[in-house]
Write a protein that binds this DNA or RNA. Structure first.
Length: 868
RNA sequence: GCCGCUGUGGUGAAAUGGUAAACACAGCAGACUUAAAAUCUGCUGGGAGGUAACUCCCUUGCCGGUUCGAGUCCGGCCAGCGGCACCA
């Protein structure tokens, strides 16, 4: 490369140093080193010598990154800069600020990358973390690095395993809260009974198996029948897996969203995912049999319209019910349905299929016999796995009835002008005996009471949410602290934690559901008669509680110290973390799982709040310059390192905040980066001037003089607006105001040094390097005017309301709401004076056309509107 | 199909119901310079009239409503983006 450069003799090239409008590449690393050496952002904990208990706390959290080999992308610094500005601002405003960072480092991509490159995942993970940490430090984030956590560190996952044991050794009682399983042991329950109530339990139900990834996946990780990671086909197959009983918390996970300051869209997303629906269970007798089938319906009011019944193909009663003639057809159908992957089931969703079992059920409400079918549009995992079909008032049942020519019977009268066939909304009950004439809600109530009275059913609630499939057949995850003996599982003692994964040369998936840990034959053997659980935990495990570890990251005695947890997570609100910023992609995964774990820990008395995150803000995606999602294949990816190299970390930070509202999706613009870069250069030149030789020194214009009225006003406006906007996370408008303030300074011949220092304090949360550097330079010339030490330790300036008030304001005169004239008037002008002034205006008179005013509205300081 | 979000200049955007387009980008013109870069200054939604200073009209996706006054509040529609989708 070097040889290709033009010779300096003919065309002296601008070196990159000379081209820079201010020497950020010198002072940015310098201040990063100073902050690190002084531990400028170390946050003392309760109990530490330098802890000040009189200060309020502020816990500001980022979604910690997965340290991939690709390094940071520009989306990371977006949220991270936002929280950094808030954290720095709160610190300057007198808060104890907890603003930590860590690594979510277990998981599939690390393992796949390791397999591909023939390295151990621990080695690649270490390397990636190193890269990420360096990149974050080069952006000047004010993290307390003493609190850094790494989910793959045995000192960390020891406690992930410990929490798993808490789940394993707990059950949900009558009160809906988690209790130690020991309470059940005391009641003399059998082993099976106890195991069936644990929050972490073993199940052999069909699960999402992804052959390509060689592991099972949670429902949340399967999108359109494909794995969320990689997009590989996923099939259903029964396997013995660990499950977490998140369904026991379904209602609380819905209810307790109410007290959180989260975007409505995310709350709604979680509510929809949990999917509560109210209805009733109805028992149907099977004709000529002792069996009864219980169905779940949200429309018990349509019971009279049930013309057939459908069981899920996997329903346990199918074998019992099926008639001699139908056995072959039913067997065939069940076999076919079982083979269908989730993807096929989704694709064929609209094409109904099913088989008659040959059996009939008796409608309890009228004694009618209705045929029992099996069909895969009824899912075993929801409700009771059986439905009563009311084709007249349910779309799916209607479709099915059409295809198989089953009767359709109207039982709801729709409003005038609507066809009753396929009418699914509320109406008036008809052809329904004692329900006739009732509105849908009334009919629901009446039939529920009737069923309950006759012992034929009861009102009940169902959720779409399923229990969380918690085991994976992978190497790079937390091993379960569980051993098996004689077909039974039991936990290992907490004293044996952390349970390290075995050192394996070959950790590739086996290609079968047998986990790779099975290859560690020594490790597997726990005792002469017991073997270890071979599955590992999913990536979500570590991220379910990392925010708690930050509170007390070095604690080796407890997952988090009691005093630290109480202080940082406390504060009288449901959620402990004051502000959590991250992308929307975790709306139902991480954010639901973490809430669940937190509630269990809360019930068991290990944490003091029912919710982990009080205020949640989603940053919007940053698109490429072409307005498309950034991707390697499109070639529109912006690398933050390049931006830092060219324009500096402060410019990158400032630009990402200036682009637009944090929550919004917005495209990148390199020209926009140059804009804020020019702004920072202007700020630099408020203080610095350059000699002919290109040497920077403190400007002669900078003097110890008081600021004049205009500058003072601009400065105090900036203090006010920036303070308010930071609280609102409206960083773009805060930056605009600083730009306006800078213009006011530039207009002056003489720079008032102490006013400039105040401005630097306001700028410092946004662009901390240049602010600290300029302050230090001013301090060298005017020690009494500048901040001694770091701006982050300074106090956020107070604005003076008096400085904001102008002597004169511009008043707008309107006629019939249209702007016709303006006037500058003294600020203290009265309503009467303004009215008089407006009526005296020649232009106003012209547009009044000699008519008399009907009404005059006067808004002091703003306008006069004359209505004629 | 259902749910949610968003529609404002050439572009990113701003605006407690009170002067629409702050701030920035791009563009144009000028100053400095032998020249360029950098920097600084001015102009920059559309239309009409006027030599000009200037004046008027229109403009926040579309239609309607509330109000002295609507980008903002209410109702209906359209478009784009995102999510969910046989959950009885």
């Amino acid at each position: 490369m070097t040889s290709l450069r033009p010779s300096p003799c003919f065309a002296p090239p601008m070196s990159s140093e000379q081209r820079k409008a201010f020497p950020f590449s010198e002072f940015e690393p310098k201040w990063q080193d100073v902050w690190e050496a002084r531990k400028a952002f170390r946050t003392p904990n309760p109990g530490d010598a330098d802890f000040d208990a009189s200060k309020p706390k502020y816990f500001v959290l980022d979604m910690f990154p997965y340290p991939s080999g690709a390094g940071l992308h520009v989306g990371h610094p977006e949220g991270y800069t936002a929280t950094d500005i808030i954290g720095r601002f709160k610190k300057m405003s007198g808060f104890n600020v907890l603003h930590p960072m860590g690594w979510d480092a277990f998981g599939l991509p690390a393992e796949q990358y390791a397999i591909k490159t023939g390295q151990h995942p621990r080695a690649t993970t270490e390397k990636n973390i190193e890269g990420f940490r360096g990149q974050l430090k080069r952006l000047g984030f004010a993290y307390d690095w003493d609190r850094e956590v790494n989910t793959t560190d045995p000192g960390y996952f020891k406690w992930t395993q410990w929490i798993f044991l808490k789940l394993y050794n707990s059950y949900v009682g009558e009160d809906g809260k988690a209790h130690p399983i020991a309470e059940l042991e005391g009641k003399g329950l059998s082993r099976e009974e106890i195991d069936s109530r644990r929050l972490a339990y073993v199940s052999s139900a069909p699960v999402n198996w992804c052959p390509e990834l060689g592991t099972v996946l949670a429902n949340e990780e399967v999108v359109d029948g494909k794995s969320e990671v990689g997009g590989f086909p996923v099939e259903r197959r029964p396997m013995r897996q660990w499950m977490l009983r998140i369904t026991a918390y379904a209602q609380r996970l819905i209810d307790e969203l109410d007290g959180l300051d989260w975007p409505e869209s995310i709350k709604l997303h979680q509510r929809n995912w949990i999917g509560r629906s109210e209805g009733a269970e109805v028992k149907f007798k099977v004709a000529g049999s002792e069996e009864t089938i219980t169905v779940f319906t949200t429309r018990p009011d349509t019971l009279f319209g049930a013309t057939y019944m459908v069981l899920a193909p996997e329903h346990r009663l199918v074998d019992v019910l099926v008639s001699e003639e139908q056995i072959t057809a039913v067997e065939e159908y069940r076999e076919k349905a079982g083979r269908k992957s989730d993807m096929e089931r989704t694709e064929l969703a609209k094409d109904k299929s099913g088989v008659f079992t040959g059996a009939y059920a008796i409608n309890p409400v009228n004694g009618e016999q209705i045929p029992i079918w099996i069909a895969d549009y009824v899912l075993m995992g929801y409700g009771t796995g059986a439905i009563m079909a009311v084709p007249a008032h349910d779309e799916r049942d209607f479709e099915f009835a059409q295809k198989f020519e089953l009767p359709v019977k109207q039982v709801v009268q729709p409003p005038e002008g609507k066809d009753w066939q396929g009418f699914t909304d509320h109406g008036i009950a008809v052809n329904s005996g004692f329900l006739d004439g009732l509105s849908t809600p009334e009919a629901k109530k009446k039939i529920a009471a009737w069923l309950e009275e006759k012992g034929l059913g009861k009102g009940t609630v169902n959720f779409k949410l399923r229990d969380w499939l918690f085991s994976r057949q992978r190497y790079w995850g937390e091993p379960f602290p569980i051993v098996w003996e004689d077909g039974n599982h039991r936990s290992i003692p907490a004293s044996e934690l952390p349970l390290l994964p075995p050192t394996l040369e070959d950790f590739k998936p086996t290609g079968t559901p047998e986990p790779p840990l099975s290859k560690a034959t020594d490790w597997v053997r726990y005792s002469a008669t017991a073997t270890r659980e071979l599955n590992t935990m999913p990536q979500w495990a570590g991220s379910c509680w990392y925010y708690l570890r930050y509170c007390d990251a070095q604690n080796s005695e407890r997952f988090v110290g009691e005093a630290a947890e109480k202080y940082w997570m406390g504060g009288g609100k449901p959620g402990g973390v004051d502000l959590y910023v991250g992308g929307t992609e975790h709306a139902v995964l991480h954010l639901l799982y973490a809430r669940f774990w937190h509630k269990v820990l809360f019930d068991l008395g290990y944490v003091t709040t029912p919710e982990p995150f009080q205020r949640l803000v989603n940053q919007g995606l940053i698109l490429g310059e072409d307005g498309q999602k950034m991707s390697k294949s499109r070639g529109n990816v912006v690398n933050p390192d390049d931006v830092v190299k060219e324009y500096g970390a402060d410019s990158l930070r400032l630009y990402e905040m200036f682009m637009g509202p944090l929550e919004q999706v917005k495209p990148w613009s390199m020209k926009g980066v140059e804009g804020v870069y020019r702004f920072l250069a202007r700020v630099w030149r408020l203080v610095m001037e350059v000699s002919e030789e290109g040497v920077w020194s403190v400007s002669a214009a900078l003097q110890d003089v008081p600021a004049n009225k205009q500058v003072t006003k601009a400065l105090h406006e900036a203090i006010k607006k920036c303070g308010e906007d930071i609280e609102k996370l409206s960083f773009n408008t805060a930056i605009s105001q600083m730009m306006i303030c800078t213009k006011a300074f530039i207009a002056e011949e003489v720079m008032p040094a102490s006013a400039v220092v105040t401005f630097l304090k306001v700028l410092s949360p946004f662009a901390p390097h240049i602010a600290d550097d300029l302050n230090a330079r001013i301090a060298s010339k005017f020690p009494d005017l500048a901040v001694q030490g770091l701006l982050s330790d300074a106090t956020w300036p107070k604005y003076d309301p008096a400085a904001l008030i102008e002597d004169e304001v511009e008043i707008v005169f309107q006629v019939n709401g249209k702007l016709r004239d303006k006037a500058r008037v003294p600020i203290q002008s009265t309503k009467e004076e303004l009215e008089k002034l407006a009526l005296a205006s020649a232009r106003v008179r012209e547009f009044m056309e000699g008519k008399t005013p009907k009404k005059i509205i006067v808004v002091p300081g703003k306008l006069v509107n004359i209505v004629v």
